[in-house]
Amino acid sequence: MTTVNDVTETLDVKGASCPMPVIKTKGAIDDLDVDDILEVLATDAGSMSDLDGWAAGTEGVELLKQVEEGDVYKHYVRKTA
């Protein structure tokens, strides 16, 4: 599994609620190159399940890791294609 040390870009969607974390993540991923890693910072508790579901159902992305740190949910998504 790819490590999440090399984050290419960070997307801050703290304060935004469903469906914005997913939609903004999709937009940010579109602007990245293959193998780039996007870090998404969210405060929406639903983002844990939603980003997982989105990554599973979407071509060309891989969800590497999700962590909860205090009030912030951190997601790491790699662009695979």
């Binding site: 469903c18 469906p19 997913v22 939609i23 999709k26 937009g27 989105w54 159902g57 979407t58 071509e59």
Partner: peptide, 10 residues
Amino acid sequence: ILASTAAAFG
């Protein structure tokens, strides 16, 4: 909400 999210799924 469903339409914009579905679009994010491609």
